[in-house]
Design a protein around this nucleic acid. Sequence first.
DNA 1: CGTACTTTTGAATCGCATCAAATCTGGTGG
DNA 2: CCACCAGATTTGATGCGATTCAAAAGTACG
Lengths: 213, 213
Amino acid sequence: MTIDWQAIEIMHSDVKALPESLRRLAADMKLVAGSVLAHVGSRPKFMYFVCQGELRLRRISVNGTEVVLQRCTSGFVAEASLESSAYHCDVAVIENSQVLTFPIQAFRAILREDVVFCQFWMARLAREVRTLRAQCERLALRTASERVQHYIESEGRNGRLALRQTRKAWAAQLGLTHEALYRTLATLVADQVITLTQGQNQLIITAIGAKRR
Amino acid sequence: MTIDWQAIEIMHSDVKALPESLRRLAADMKLVAGSVLAHVGSRPKFMYFVCQGELRLRRISVNGTEVVLQRCTSGFVAEASLESSAYHCDVAVIENSQVLTFPIQAFRAILREDVVFCQFWMARLAREVRTLRAQCERLALRTASERVQHYIESEGRNGRLALRQTRKAWAAQLGLTHEALYRTLATLVADQVITLTQGQNQLIITAIGAKRR
DNA sequence: CGTACTTTTGAATCGCATCAAATCTGGTGG
DNA sequence: CCACCAGATTTGATGCGATTCAAAAGTACG
């Protein structure tokens, strides 16, 4: 059960910040798509780090709609769970995944002792805050078209975005039904605001004009 | 220009966690309603702590709508600015306010040295993440009524909520127009889902039934 | 007492959700 | 290799709910 840290570091540079003491406590774990790693309200026992696959933080809202709060395909999951005594969302396994697990008590202890790692962790949280603020901003936009363009601008590079998920999943993240997203993309293409190109296993979206709305 | 820390600590318990070294660098500052403390894109020079008044993190979105990302009436503002070289939102002064300012370089340095304060700061960030996740969840709800009830549940206590802002401002936070919110509140009252009581200078909202939608 | 702002109500319009159904796709097992 | 299946994609029709524009009434504050 030895973990090949070097191999993991190549894929996930975040791992480099992990102190030796934490690495010794890590364990390897495989997860099956469709399962749920943690439920709302349950007590966090481990911190998880995604090496492969995809997890999602989600909540089933009052009326039954699924709300995606975060997609995790690489890196730590649910950083905020470190501080709290209960998960505030479900952690769902979307694809077969491989994760590292760290006992949460030990994690907390090391965070208290290791200043460098503490720094690193704070930076992670701050980044998370920024991402969430962007998402709030996006969800407050009133039309599907605006949300799509906002997403391209804030998540893409120079108006180019490689969509690493299905459009259906993207729709959930944008707070739209998949039908609405399909239609919106179609009209945006027709109006020459964006172009869609099929890359290998992912859709490439490119913004063209400065046209809005 | 001496700051009365004891007086401030009574109102804002967060201040107790501030190490002496940081306190020595603090300065007092009064802000006028309507002004803007920091603009998107500008470089953070100070960390701000709100003693009195109200600041808001906001962004003017693509189509001109104001999006409120955070209201600050007490405590640190824009925690994430600590890590970044530019503000990612405007910091607007809503009411005449009094804030403490801390040179950001020094703030960072002390965070590197003082483990206890670092702990405290991490906890703040984690709380912020949770709040933002709740807001994302709320904004993804499709109807005004659901957002209102979600807000009452997540921000209130036992189905009771003291609204510390105007309904118009609340509407912005909920991603609604003020008209929509007024109408929604009216129908929720009519349907006996909530009651509204006028407290001193604030509206008290109480959820009654388990009725949804 | 006037001004600026919030609160309230009305009417028309628009965009998305919803329900439905057809097609396309990748992956599976025979 | 092909038939088949589950899921994603796509298109259509309809209705609801929020936006929008407008205007009046209420409220706080100097």
